[in-house]
Design a protein around this nucleic acid. Sequence first.
DNA 1: CGGGTTGCATAACGATGTTGTGTTACCGAT
DNA 2: ATCGGTAACACAACATCGTTATGCAACCCG
Lengths: 241, 241
Amino acid sequence: MLYNTVMAMLCNTVQMSPRRHDPNIRLALIEAAARLITEGGTAGLSTRRLAAEAGTSTMAVYTYFGSMSELVREIVHDGFARLDHTFRLVEPTDDPVADMALLGRAYRYNALTNRDMFGVMFGGSSLAGFALTDEDRQYGRYTLSSVIKCATRCIESGRFRHDDAGIMAHQMWLAVHGTVTLEIGGYLAAPYDADRCFESQITALMIGVGDQPDLTNKSVAISLERFRIVFGSPDGQHGTG
Amino acid sequence: MLYNTVMAMLCNTVQMSPRRHDPNIRLALIEAAARLITEGGTAGLSTRRLAAEAGTSTMAVYTYFGSMSELVREIVHDGFARLDHTFRLVEPTDDPVADMALLGRAYRYNALTNRDMFGVMFGGSSLAGFALTDEDRQYGRYTLSSVIKCATRCIESGRFRHDDAGIMAHQMWLAVHGTVTLEIGGYLAAPYDADRCFESQITALMIGVGDQPDLTNKSVAISLERFRIVFGSPDGQHGTG
DNA sequence: CGGGTTGCATAACGATGTTGTGTTACCGAT
DNA sequence: ATCGGTAACACAACATCGTTATGCAACCCG
């Protein structure tokens, strides 16, 4: 659907202001860009295709965003917001270790759902000359605050030897991030497939920071049950795509 | 130095065969490409610059490699060979856990030394339309065999609860890979800088697979000493670039 | 109701990977 | 010895990329 022609028709009938920055076009561009990326990978995004998809010309990108990479930046920020939203689906319970494991599953779920965006967000893929700035990274670190809060509760529960929730949260992040990155890269195949590696990884990590193995196993199992309920994956895990 | 003109002079004086596939040109292209990538990042590699650097025309890329992405593929394979070589600098001792930790440091060292190539090797960066194939990934998995061997010795030493060296090696890989990826991405800043996260991560992992905390701490400390000796980092660690 | 300004379609520019075109030089057979 | 076949590759063209210039048309304000 060509946005521009629709808008032209609208402006002929209803009295509107098609001049002056139009948030509708801006939104249409962002949505079209996100669609192009998820459908055609990072290489699928181009000014021409974007303009065609949104029904405008390539100039719209520059009037609304200044450059292609600035548009990508907005999408990246949007991606972090989505990650944050995914984290918020994990509600605190009286088993903070299970909560933490579920946050790990949520991170993985979010990454696998938005594979290409994930690569851009964390500095891997170079997309249309986009490069992360420190401000962008702040968005990323901010989303980690959910994990830090959970780590604090883990420590308060007495199950962890750690006294620093920040380092604990980072360890969880690094472990899950590494798993997901290599999973998306296609490096985790049977017999060491991504599902198996993921379970081993979070289990070892919990034990590594002081939890008792049997308690960890119980909490990890609970987190898997909760994941099925909240995120509704058909086979109970994520699938290796 | 323009390779082509030199070759022309050589062929006028000494009797050589500048026609028929010339491995010298092939090598010159690969070396020039690697140089361009390390100097100018993934965006710094282009057929024109490559041709100028090697003193040939852009056609040389196609006669010797078929396409730009095939040339990248060769460089990726070269990168895996370099990683394997780095692993071999870690000699087995009677403290296999320290060996394993040192392998982790070696992985990180190699990644930080060849940052841009690292991103390409593990599926993050898209470079000149290059995409990993399963065969490429085999190169990556092969280099893991050094780690698996070490994991086997760790298990035999009785310090680990695990009975599967493969999953143990994978866990080490995932943990270190995640740390390094986010370090290169610029996400690990004080107070949770990369050095600190790395130490915490490998320590927690060893404990997580069954090692006793005090033994782990000792082995990790030994691995750091050995790293300083073998890899000769000035500040004893890697520096966060 | 006209000048200023703003949005943006069109077209152009430089650079990209890749593909024709043509020349040049080697090789092998006669 | 020489001549045709073939392989290498310099040069130029092509499509596409992000970006920038140009110009027109429409809103805003005086």
